[in-house]
Design a protein around this nucleic acid. Structure first.
Lengths: 347, 347
DNA sequence: TCTGGCACTCTCGATCGACGAGTGCCAAGT
DNA sequence: ACTTGGCACTCGTCGATCGAGAGTGCCAGA
């Protein structure tokens, strides 16, 4: 009857299976964990757990293996996020400290996450749509071309070259560029990109008849930067960890690698987080909509400067993974990266 | 005695083995290729080829498999680069046509190469050290900070923020920025980066006592961009193809994936090309110095705008690969990318 | 120098049986 | 109402054995 003990048994099964990666039997369980009962009792509990769909026997007379639902219960109710050791904390700090720009931060983060968890790490680039404009610079190039440099509060820089269709190298041209530069920064600097986009569009209508074409060109290029797919980018590391994980895993490694190359679907996955931005999200096995990733779990969390969550990062591994420590690592890294972005924003 | 026929036999072995991925025996050979001789004769030739170290029998009484040296002879003397079909040419063009900026070009290139060859594609970012400066822009930020934007002829943009240590927002500050901007572009615009670096350093000495500190800050930041490791970046695609290749391969997939994550060594590999920039370089199996990649071959070629070779791209696959078509694809893509960079340079 | 023939070798796959781990269930104990 | 020890039963794993098939090496003859 005791539901408590049944859950203890489930927890023990998950822990043992994660460690040994072999189906765990009743005898081994009572030996390794000092539950105060005999193997026979554990067997009864196991039978019930199996009825509930939380564990599963690969075949008669092998041990039991947790199902996806079993892992779900384990993660939700039977485990606490294991606090990181101070050594690990320090390592995170040191590793991310020396980053020189956003690319570097992302690159270091993804490598750090991979080596920390020994799994595949996934980091999404901070997305423009959720960021704010820091500054927009216009650089004349050639006689009629203008390079637009957009600087985002995350430290990211986007650039485009547009043809304004008129000569910019003479006096009036130069003052036109100066005017446009002033106007767009006036309305857009320091403003969230979504707001900036609408304000900028309004600028076109307000512009003088003569300058409207040039303004139009600049604004539409900036608008492009918004929808530009490049803003939605992910970086991966630690694929080699897939080969190391267990020996049954290699068979499914092909589909997994394929799925990881579909950055678009990966991004969609990373975007689907829970409501609480401070919580680590865990998607287990078949909970995962993507074909090819249904034997894996995704542990992810949002990050970003300030209160806003500008992007996500996470870790992908076999469903049989050490959830408490993985979750701890993901959370710690996400928080640390957020801090770093905060500092850079202040710069 | 006939050395010619022996090489024909070698070629036939390579071709069959590439296709079937199984050791090829004398009987199968004479059936599939109409060499005008009998199986016994072929066997004699095989014995000689084995003495020369060009082929190898996994065990008594299995067929023969080419050795690395065998592939080498095949590539150097027995095969011509297979011309691409017109359909493939068109596909390359279409796929790379719509690229909006350098990141996009590189991204599309690597994916294209992977899907074309069904192997792992590797593309090195055009390196600054071999490129020329197109323009340098200075953007004041805050009261004493200056953002330096370096635009490279490949279309690439680098940026840095430096603290000049003096107020820039007043009148003299603004004119100082204007002066520096003018001076550095004067000596650096249109010049190869290596030359620009030395000329810029000279500028510091020539500067007025009062402005020297600011000039120094700008120049040293630009110098940093030269050695900055980020300039040496590679992008990968098609890792999932590793899982598909043969069934013996998966065992070695772990070390390969690990080696692919060592971007630094990958870059070194890509950098080692033959003398002729128009030639495709092939590194076969054990010719390859990197541990973990010794069961693979790297087919690579330089690319770049103009005559200069600014970077390399290539394909990595099992030594048992279809060299003629792979080489054709790599060459075609490298040339096409070079063309695209040329066009962008003209912009 | 080539060819057909032949004995020999070695891998691969299937079959079989013993072994052992683990279960399910039952009857007895608390 | 649970728990426990015992016991029969089920299966998958491992190792050995064996036959088939593919391929070679070598030799004698053209």
């Amino acid at each position: 009857m005791s539901e408590d003990r049944r859950l203890m048994v489930l927890r023990a099964i998950v822990q043992d299976y994660v460690q040994t990666s072999e189906p765990v039997g009743s005898r081994a369980l009572v030996e390794r964990h000092h539950l105060g009962v005999s193997a026979a009792t554990v067997r009864n509990d196991m039978a019930l757990l199996e009825e509930e769909g939380l564990i599963h026997a690969p075949h008669t007379s092998a041990g039991r293996v947790p199902t996806d639902a079993g892992y779900r219960v384990f993660v939700d109710r039977l485990s606490a996020v294991k606090p990181l050791g101070s050594g690990e904390r320090r390592a995170i700090g040191q590793f991310l400290e020396g980053a020189v720009d956003l690319d570097d931060v992302v690159d270091r983060t993804v490598r750090l996450l991979a080596s920390l968890t020994r799994q595949v790490a996934v980091v999404q680039y901070p997305s423009l749509t959720r960021s704010t404009v820091r500054h927009i610079e216009l650089v004349p190039m050639g006689s009629s071309h203008l390079m637009i440099v957009l600087i985002v509060n995350t430290g990211r820089v986007e650039q485009r070259v547009v043809d304004t269709g008129r000569v910019l190298s003479d006096g009036t041209g130069e003052s036109l560029v100066a005017t446009i530069r002033a106007r767009i920064n006036e309305v857009a600097a320091g403003v969230p990109f979504t707001v900036a986009a609408t304000r900028l569009r309004r600028l076109v209508d307000e512009a003088d008849e003569a300058d409207r074409a040039a303004m139009e060109a600049v604004v539409s290029a900036l608008g492009d930067a918004l929808v530009e797919e490049r803003e939605e980018r992910v970086v991966l590391a630690g694929q080699s960890n897939l080969a190391r994980a267990g020996t049954d895993f290699p068979r499914t490694i092909g589909p997994i690698l394929e799925a990881l190359e579909e950055h678009v679907t990966l991004l969609r996955l990373l975007g689907q987080l829970g409501d609480d931005p401070e919580l680590v999200s865990v998607r287990i096995g078949s909970e995962n909509p993507v074909t090819g990733l249904q034997s894996t779990s995704l542990v992810s969390m949002g990050y970003g400067s300030g209160a806003e969550r500008v992007a996500s990062l996470g870790v992908l591994g076999p469903t049989r993974m050490d959830y408490p420590t993985t979750m701890a690592s993901v959370r710690a890294v996400a928080r640390y990266v957020s801090e770093i972005l905060d500092e850079n924003q202040a710069t």
